[in-house]
Computed example of a mutant assay.
Amino acid sequence: MTDPRGPILAAGCVLWRPAPSGHGIEIALVHRPKYDDWSHPKGKRKRDETAEACALREVLEETGQRCEPGARLPTVHYTVDGRPKEITYWAARALGGTFTPTKEVDAVLWLKPTAARARLTQPRDRELLDAAVATSRH
């Protein structure tokens, strides 16, 4: 049976930056203490907020980074407490900023894609990482 409220709408980014070494890229992962997991920055859309505006806001709130969205990535679907959730993602290049730990996100790690892939908690996040690496111009 379909939930009359409709799906939970959210958005986020697979955030990347050129590696400081000058070779390849690094991916930002956020740690959420509530779930003790590592994931890509994302969050629920506000009323009348576009998916892209939500993704940029969530990246800024969770990582302190401003970013430039690039390729649209696959939309992720799963169920939370019996209600469908739909998360729209982009690959996004970090433009700079400063991380400040919060109750929601207490750590950000910048890792090479292979290390980020191993650290991610959810298999669906690994698939997004693979898609972002394949489409990001770096």
Rank of each mutant, 00 (worst) to 15 (best):
A92T: 01
W38R: 04
T121F: 06
R119Q: 14
R93M: 09
H31S: 07
R66W: 06
S39E: 15
A92F: 03
A91T: 12
A51V: 04
K112N: 10
R32T: 08
E58H: 06
A19Y: 05
L111E: 13
K34H: 11
R32A: 12
C67K: 00
L73M: 09
G97R: 09
E61C: 01
E58K: 14
L95S: 08
D37G: 05
A51H: 12
Y78S: 12
G82W: 12
C54A: 13
R32P: 00
V59I: 11
E86A: 08
P69L: 11
R72W: 02
C67D: 04
C67G: 13
G70T: 03
V108T: 10
E61I: 03
Q122H: 15
T102P: 04
L109R: 15
R119F: 01
Q122V: 05
I87F: 00
G70S: 08
E62Y: 04
R45E: 12
E49D: 07
G82N: 11
K34Y: 10
A92W: 02
L56R: 05
A51N: 09
A92I: 04
A53L: 12
R93Q: 14
L109G: 06
T98F: 01
A53S: 15
P18C: 05
L73E: 02
I87Y: 01
L120W: 05
H40W: 13
Y89K: 01
W90P: 00
D36I: 00
L120R: 02
P101T: 09
V80H: 07
W110Y: 11
P101C: 08
P74K: 06
T100Y: 09
E52I: 14
V30C: 15
R45V: 03
R57H: 09
I27P: 02
R47H: 14
L73T: 00
Y89M: 00
A116I: 02
E26Q: 15
C67M: 03
L56K: 03
C67W: 05
P74I: 07
Y35M: 08
E62I: 05
R45G: 03
V105T: 14
G64P: 11
P33M: 03
V30N: 02
K103I: 11
A71P: 03
R93P: 00
T88E: 15
I27H: 07
E68K: 13
P18D: 13
A94Q: 06
V76T: 14
V30R: 02
T98M: 05
G24A: 08
D36K: 12
A28C: 10
I27V: 15
V30H: 04
P18M: 03
G22L: 06
T79M: 12
T114M: 10
G97C: 10
P41Y: 07
A53G: 10
A51G: 05
K112C: 09
K46V: 07
L95T: 11
T114P: 00
R117C: 07
E86Y: 01
Q122T: 05
C54R: 01
Y78N: 14
P41H: 07
L29W: 01
S39P: 00
I27D: 08
R47F: 11
P18V: 03
C54I: 03
D48C: 04
V76I: 15
G82E: 11
I27Y: 09
D106V: 04
E61F: 09
L111A: 02
A118K: 14
E49R: 06
L73Q: 05
T102G: 12
E86T: 14
T102Y: 01
L29G: 02
A118I: 01
I25Q: 10
K42G: 13
G97P: 08
E26D: 13
L73Y: 02
I87R: 04
A55L: 01
R72N: 02
